[in-house]
Amino acid sequence: MNVTQNTEAQRMSFWEKLYLPAIVQGLGVTLRQMFRPKFTRQYPEERWEPLGSYRGSPVLVLDEDGERCVACGLCSRVCPALAIEVQAAETEREKERYPVKFEINMLRCIYCGYCEEVCPEEAIVMSKDYELVFEDRESAILGKEQLLVPIEKLQDRLEFLRRYK
């Protein structure tokens, strides 16, 4: 049913009906808006440096003694996306193993961070890398050479883990 009494049109005063004052007011709002500082980041030039809590692509930690991973396979086991493949091999030292093959399929990884959480050696951590671009599917499967990152570059994350994990 159409409302015929006390409609908005009836309630409006003469000035309001003209609309022009309201439009001028609106123009004022947009004019002010025009000169407010903008928040846009000019991406390729202006990069964002994530904090330690950021979960970028998972990487393997490389410290003074070489890779930390002992190829226990827990990360591969826990990974909900089945993104990690580890193949273990013996080292010279007794009861020690190392991964001959360690691959993470970045097309599968969902950046959940479970691998990092489960790792007994703090050997796999989430890096700050968010620029993951691949030209084909094969190159999205990262091998050990690409995954190993010197420990110096991962200090923020390790610090974060020490504090909050």
Binding site: T30, Q33, M34, F35, R36, K38, F39, T40, Q42
Partner: peptide
Amino acid sequence: RVAAWIQDRI
């Protein structure tokens, strides 16, 4: 450009 400025863009 003006549209962008009004909408908080660049």
